[in-house]
């Protein structure tokens, strides 16, 4: 069977994507601990390596060497599948994300649909893990994760639909292509399409927070109430994979937000400026890490919302506004 270059390229990209996902998962932990520390005016990890840079490595080794305890009375099949079910969809969605013009594993025409589909699979893993570990706290947190995910899936998809309408395609590379030129071409400032575009970005950002169970919506793994929520019974690498899955989902959310709203790999300055104007991977990573910085920044500032407050926020505020945005955009497109 002759190995045509396409397969080699695909394999290389897959290895690169998985490396990117796990590297990110590890070093986001480091970034979170450092950023939280400085917000609270303390140092954060600094013993292991310069500025504590080897800390995630050491944490990883610690998690791997820890004993994988499968408590008695636990449904073994569900208990073992759950962490994988959380991790795999996150890595799968990396396949379609275009980091730059050429740097994309598989440029699918329905890239956006693939990502949205995988986004709803990861919380199934949470559900199975919680149900499998037969722990009261886990079951409560699973119930919360379920209704939270349903409540925030709808406004997110409505915003995605409006954007697909604006850019006319679901292929991520083309969506980014449309946002060429300076930052006023980005969708976030694309007031021609709909005056509510910045509000749409805000809603998308809030839904992304809720999708990945990040504060202030971390109802499912609320430390002070449900101890550790869905993964109370997990130890060692089981917990490690859950953790990596959560961070991979945050990275996915940040990437999709940059692609849809902040003009992917295009630089904010018009191409005429020689050095800064050129669009490249650096800009994509810069924007993505800025969004991740904000996600962490929000976590260490706000208290947790109440559960019914969270659902009211979605059903009563986010969904109506996103529908208004949808109708407004279609009207604007029809008229102009």
């Amino acid at each position: 069977m002759t190995l045509d270059p396409e397969i080699i390229r695909l394999l290389a990209f897959l290895v690169g994507v998985i490396a990117f996902a796990s590297f990110n998962a590890a070093y986001l932990v480091w970034l979170e601990r450092k950023e939280a520390a400085h917000i609270q005016r303390r140092i954060g990890p600094k013993e292991v390596g310069p500025f504590g840079l080897l800390q995630p490595l050491v944490d990883g080794i610690k998690l791997m060497t820890k004993q994988l305890i499968v408590p008695a009375g636990v449904d073994p099949v569900l208990f073992k599948i759950a962490p994988i079910l959380v991790m795999v969809p996150a890595i799968m969605s990396f396949v379609t994300i275009p980091f730059s013009e050429t740097l994309v594993a598989r440029n699918l025409d329905l890239g956006l649909l693939v990502i949205s589909a995988f986004a709803s699979v990861n919380f199934l893993g949470l559900l199975l893990g919680a149900w499998g570990s037969r722990n009261k706290y886990a079951v409560i947190s699973a119930g919360r994760a379920f209704s939270q995910n349903v409540a925030y899936e709808i406004p997110m998809l409505v915003i995605v639909v409006t954007l697909v309408m604006v850019s006319g395609t679901m292929n991520l590379t083309e969506i980014v292509g449309l946002q060429m030129g300076g930052f006023w071409h980005w969708n976030i400032l694309n007031l021609a399409a709909s005056p509510l575009m910045p509000v749409a970005f805000l809603i998308f950002f809030v839904c992304m927070l809720a999708e990945t169970n990040r504060a202030p919506f971390d109802m499912s793994e609320a430390e002070s109430e449900l101890v550790a929520g869905a993964f109370t019974e997990y130890s060692g690498m089981g917990f490690g994979v859950f953790f990596m899955g959560e961070y991979a989902n945050i990275v996915i959310g940040a990437c999709v937000a940059t692609i849809l709203f902040l003009g992917g790999w295009h630089s904010p300055f018009p191409d005429t400026i020689p050095f800064f104007g050129a669009s490249s991977v650096i800009w994509f990573l810069l924007k993505m890490y800025f969004i991740i910085f904000t996600v962490i920044w929000i976590r260490w500032t706000f208290p947790r919302t109440t559960f019914y407050g969270l659902l009211n926020l979605s059903w009563k505020i986010l969904i109506p506004i996103s529908f208004v945005n949808l109708i407004l955009t279609s009207a604007m497109l029809k008229v102009f």
């Binding site: 950023e35 400085h38 917000i39 609270q40 005016r41 303390r42 140092i43 920044w297 260490w300 500032t301």
Partner: peptide, 9 residues
């Protein structure tokens, strides 16, 4: 919080 982020430890 961002103001405290940039203040000394």
């Amino acid at each position: 919080t961002i103001r405290y982020f940039f203040q000394p430890v």
